[in-house]
Design a protein around this nucleic acid. Sequence first.
DNA 1: AATGAATGAGAGTTCATTCAT
DNA 2: AATGAATGAACTCTCATTCAT
Lengths: 225, 225, 225, 225
Amino acid sequence: MTTTSKDNGRQRADARTGTAGGGRRRAKGSSALASERRDHLVKLAAELFAKKGYQATTVRNIADEAGILSGSLYHHFDSKESIVDEILTSFFDVLAAANQAALARGGDPREVLSELVRICFGTLVPHRAAIMVLQNDWNYLKQFDRFDYLTKAEADTERLWVDQIKRGQESGLFRDDIEPKLTYRMIRDTIWVTVRWFHPEGRLDADGLADHYIKVLFDGISKHH
Amino acid sequence: MTTTSKDNGRQRADARTGTAGGGRRRAKGSSALASERRDHLVKLAAELFAKKGYQATTVRNIADEAGILSGSLYHHFDSKESIVDEILTSFFDVLAAANQAALARGGDPREVLSELVRICFGTLVPHRAAIMVLQNDWNYLKQFDRFDYLTKAEADTERLWVDQIKRGQESGLFRDDIEPKLTYRMIRDTIWVTVRWFHPEGRLDADGLADHYIKVLFDGISKHH
Amino acid sequence: MTTTSKDNGRQRADARTGTAGGGRRRAKGSSALASERRDHLVKLAAELFAKKGYQATTVRNIADEAGILSGSLYHHFDSKESIVDEILTSFFDVLAAANQAALARGGDPREVLSELVRICFGTLVPHRAAIMVLQNDWNYLKQFDRFDYLTKAEADTERLWVDQIKRGQESGLFRDDIEPKLTYRMIRDTIWVTVRWFHPEGRLDADGLADHYIKVLFDGISKHH
Amino acid sequence: MTTTSKDNGRQRADARTGTAGGGRRRAKGSSALASERRDHLVKLAAELFAKKGYQATTVRNIADEAGILSGSLYHHFDSKESIVDEILTSFFDVLAAANQAALARGGDPREVLSELVRICFGTLVPHRAAIMVLQNDWNYLKQFDRFDYLTKAEADTERLWVDQIKRGQESGLFRDDIEPKLTYRMIRDTIWVTVRWFHPEGRLDADGLADHYIKVLFDGISKHH
DNA sequence: AATGAATGAGAGTTCATTCAT
DNA sequence: AATGAATGAACTCTCATTCAT
C-alpha cells in the first residue's frame, strides 16, 4: 500500500457516491502540496484537451506545457485516460450537487427549470474544458468501460429534468403538446454546445446567455399580443 | 500519379462554387463504374467516421470494411483527409442549395425560418454521417487549411439566417429582445446536435422532430392563456 | 476479412488440435512466399530470444536483425508475444506428434521410454531456440493466458510418461521404490536443461548424449558385478 | 555518498575469497539494526525475483512490498543489480563452504558424491530464491561483468565434482563408460532444476528427494537381478 | 484495381535511477 | 531513513502513406 497521490481509483469511487460539494478528501495532510501540483497538471491538460481534442493531445504536449518530460507525468497519473477522467468527474460532481441543491430549494416547475438552466450555463466558464471534452470527445471516450459511470450520471440528470417538465405539464404551466424527454435533450444540448463559441468577455456573459435562453425557452421567439 | 478518379481537388473546387443539385460531372464515361466503387467506399468510410470518429477510424478499418487492403484505398483517394472532405463537401452543397431554394420561394420571416429549420432536420437522415463528423470531429478538422471553405460556408449560412430573424423583428413578428446572432446559433446547434441521439425509427421521425421544435421555438414551452 | 498472413490465431487453433506433422496449412498458395518471409523472421527472433532472453530482446533487435524497421514487423505479427507463441507452438506440435508416434510403435516400457528420451534429445538441435526460451522465459511467459495451452500440453506429456514408468514397474522391469511422477520430472528437466550448455559440434552429438543418458538412467553410474 | 551500509562492493569481495560460514562482518556495531532492515529488504526482493523473475520485478515492486517508495531503496542499495548480487553471493558462499567441508570429511568417492548431492538438495529450501533466480535469470545476468565471479565459482565446483567422479572410476566404483564432465552437469542440473516444482510440504521433503535421486543415480531405474 | 511489404514518425507507457528536502 | 518529483532512455505498438509488382 503506497501513499502516492496516484490514487485515482479510490478517489473517483468516493466522488461517484455522490458526496456533494466536490471536496476531495486526501488521506494525508502532507499531500496538500502534492495535490496542488497535481491539480495544476490537470488544469494544463484540460486546456489542451479542450483546445485540440483528447485524442489529438499527446501526453508529450501536456508534459511540455508543464515543463517536464512525458514520463514524469506518470508519477502523478496512471494514464492519459485517468487525467481526463479526473477532469470529467470533478465536473459531474459539481453539477450533480448543484442540481440536487436546486431541487431541494423547491419552487414551481418553471422556477426549478429556470434554476437548472442557470446552473448549466453557470458551469460554462469554470468547467469550460470539461464541457468541451464532453462535446467533442465523448463519442470516443464512451467506448471505455471506465467512463460508464458518466452515462449513468447523465441518465440520472435526465430523470431529474424530465420529472420537472412533467410536473409543469400536470400543473398546467407547460404545454401538453411537448415531449418531455425530447424537450430536455434539446435544452441540454443547446446549452452545452454553446461552449464551442461562447466567449465570456463578449457582449453577454454566462448569466446573460442564460437569461436570453430562458426567455426564448419559455415564451418562444414570437411576439405575443 | 494516375489519371483515374483521384481528382478530389478539381471536384471540390466545382462543388464549392455552389452549383446546386449535387450532380457530379465526370470527364470520362468510362469511369462511371469507377465512380460507383468510389462512392461506395466513401459511404463505408462515412459510416465508420460517424460511429467511431474520424481520428479513431483507421484507414485499415475502412479497407477492412471494403474487403481490400489499406494500401489499395490510395488508388481511389489521395489521403484520409480527402475522404472526409468528400463527405462534408457533398453535404454542404446540398444544404446550401436547399437554403437558397427556400429563400427563393419567399414568404414572411416566420415561414422562411420554419422552412430553414425543416431543411436542417431534413438532412438528419440522408446526411447523418456528415453531420455526426461535423459535431464530433470539426474541432479537429478545422485546423487543416483544406477545410477553411467550410468555415466560410458556415458564415454565409449564418448571414442568411440572421437576416431572416432581423426581418422578423423589423416586421413585428419576432420579439425585439432577442439577439439575432445568438438565437441563430442556438437554433442551429439544437438541430444538428440531435444527430447524436436521434433515431428515425423512434416515435418521431425527422419531420415530427422539426414540427416539435418549431412549435417550441416560436411559442416557447409555456402555456399561454 | 483480410487475407494477410497475420493469422496467428487461426493457425495456432489448428495446430493445437493435434494435427500431427507440424505441416502448416496456408489458405492461399499465393502466400507461400509470404510464409517464407514470415518463417525467416520467426527464425531470427528465435535466435535472439534464445541468446538474450525473451524480455531482453527488443522488437527493434529483431527488426534490426532482419534489416527492417521495428514497425514493419507488425505487418507480419500481431505482437512480440505472438512471435514467441509461434516458436513454442511449432515445437510443441512436433514433440507431441513424435511422442504419439513412439507410443504407436509399441514395445516394452524400457523400449518406449528409451524412445521418448531419444525424441527429447532429438529436438535439442532443431528446436534449440524454443527449448531455450522454455527453460529461461517460461516462468515469465506462463503468466499470460495465451500460453495456457502449453501448460495443458505439458500435463498431457506427463501422463504419457508416467504411464510408461508405471507399466514398467508393474511388469517388473523397473524398481518399485521410485516415484513415477518424480522420476519423470527429473528425466524431463535433465534433458531439456542440457540445452544451456550442449554444443552439437562437441565430442558428443545429440544422439551420443541420449545414449549416455539412457545408460545412466537405466543402470546408474555404479559398476555392477 | 553516505557511509552507511551501502558497501556492497567491499562485502562481496570478502565473500568471494571464500571465508566460509556466511558471517557478515560489520565495521560498526551501530549498523546492526540497519543490517537487519537491509537483510529484510533483500529477502523481500528475493521472493519477488523468485516468483516473477529478475527482469519482471521492478524496483517499485520491491519497495511496495516493503511499504516504502522506490527511491528510498537506494538508501540501502546501489542498484537493482546489487540486490540480486547479494542474494546470489550469500548462496554461493554457503554452498562453497559446505562443499569444502564435505571434501574435508573424506570417504570413498561414492560417499563423497552422495554428500555433495545431499548438500545441493539441502540448499533447495533455505536458498530457494537464489536457486530460482539462477535457473531463470542467469542467462540474462551473466552478461554483466559484475557476475563473472559466479562463472568462476561454478568452474571451481565443476572441478571438485569431476575429480570425485574420476576417482570413482579409477577405483573401480563407477563405470568407465560415462563421461565425468557430462555426468556432473546432468547431476547438477537435475538437482537445481527441481526448484521449479519442488514443494517441501509435499510427500517428499528435500532429504527424501535426495535419497530418491541418489538411488537412481547410482543404480538406475532398472530392476537388477 | 489490388497486393504485400515496408517506411517513418510518433504514440502511450515503463522504469532504474537521482536528488533536494 | 524516507519522500516525492523528476529524469532520460528505452519500450511495444500504431498508422497514414508509398511503391514495386
